[in-house]
Design a protein around this nucleic acid. Structure first.
Lengths: 210, 210
DNA sequence: TGCATTTCTGAACACTGTTCATTTTATTTG
DNA sequence: CAAATAAAATGAACAGTGTTCAGAAATGCA
């Protein structure tokens, strides 16, 4: 029965086409302003066809969400591997997280800012699993730092939330254009400096406790 | 000419009615899901009437934006006044910022997360002025801390960006439901602890430099 | 009262997400 | 190969959206 195999392949290919078109449109003009008809036009099918492959618009967002988390996890893993010292690993983790956010603004948005998929798919456990796995990675690296004598006396989870909040704050302030209040040429520098400053502060904390 | 005075008053009152209805609907069900017809229904006028008072839906958002910043500034000023020590002032500033964010989620969203008004009204200088004034307040307090010997060797603006990013990160992670990965009963505690931890770390930094 | 202004309405336009009977296309069977 | 069956794609329809604008209603002034 090679036919049903091929049918399966074709279904997957079609989903791919839809997702690719949707991602590029979302990146270009955002989720709300992209219509199903827009996506259908790109892949040269009628709007109704899309509903044969995805339940609704949110399901498309959800599929992209899963893929985006996969990519982020990969980027973060790469960051971890490139360093040996636990603290430098944490620093690299944050850097790669920020890099990913700046290079994939709409996807980052979808993963950590958008509420649309969260509200409609609140029951969906999988959505949180992705986020949790990423956070577990952070906690793991923070744990390694602690074993190496850093951040003494702090709770791992709490400390990880603090680190996450800081990088997430830097990312969203910029992605949502709130750094507009600064001169254009120094925006990125300011964010990088702020991150470097944070790193310096938490690093020093160890020296004191030690 | 008491007539045109009254007309003026009536115009202002009508704008108030529209803004109040809009704010409550936005808070309830969000910006996107609130339609002009919804707002019109609440104030018992036809949809077309609203366009006699506001250019479009974004203009309503913008007006609420201005008011919301006024309220935040007031909340922050109150926070500053209640403390004498510069560092405690900074701590209180952050606390009140977070308090405002958690108590006015949709307004905070509109001020620091939404891109809708930013894109459409990109040319509008006033929008940035509000944000800038709030940031200047933070910088001022950080400056006072520095004069008192805290955060030695750091750049005021960079340091302020770091502080802002942290509290903004805490706020948005929670408002956008990303703290769902934690047990419900400890979510708020975790955020408060993370903030307290951050405060402890930046406070300690001074002791070392001194 | 009559006339001029201002205020408001409600229909219309082009768009949205989504559904579904109908048509087109592909596969299997006789 | 032709007919019957199954699968896939369509496009019209529905109820909704933001926005505009000719005309109706209300108001102000003489």
């Amino acid at each position: 029965m090679g036919v049903i195999d091929r049918k399966e392949r074709e279904k997957v290919e079609m989903k791919r086409q839809i997702l690719d078109a949707a991602r590029s449109l979302f990146l270009e003009q955002g989720f709300e302003k992209t219509s199903i008809r827009n996506i259908a036009e790109v892949i040269e099918y009628s709007a109704g066809t899309i509903y044969l492959y995805f339940k609704d618009k949110n399901e498309i967002l959800f599929a992209l969400h899963v893929e985006a988390f996969g990519a982020l996890m990969q980027a973060m893993q790469a960051g971890i591997m490139s360093e040996n010292d636990p603290f430098e690993r944490l620093v690299a983790l944050g850097k790669h997280y920020l890099k990913y956010a700046f290079e994939n603004p709409e996807l980052y948005d979808l993963m950590f800012v958008m509420t649309a998929p969260m509200e409609t798919l609140e029951c969906r456990e999988e959505i949180w699993c992705d986020g949790e796995r990423a956070f577990e990675t952070l906690k793991f690296v923070v744990g390694e730092c602690m074993q190496a004598g850093y951040f003494e006396g702090f709770d791992n989870e709490t400390f990880s939330v603090m680190v996450w909040s800081l990088v997430h704050g830097l990312a969203t302030l910029h992605l949502r254009r709130r750094t507009m209040i600064f001169a254009e040429e120094k925006r990125i520098q300011l964010l990088e400096d702020a991150y470097a400053q944070f790193v310096q502060i938490i690093k020093q904390y160890k020296s004191l406790a030690a």
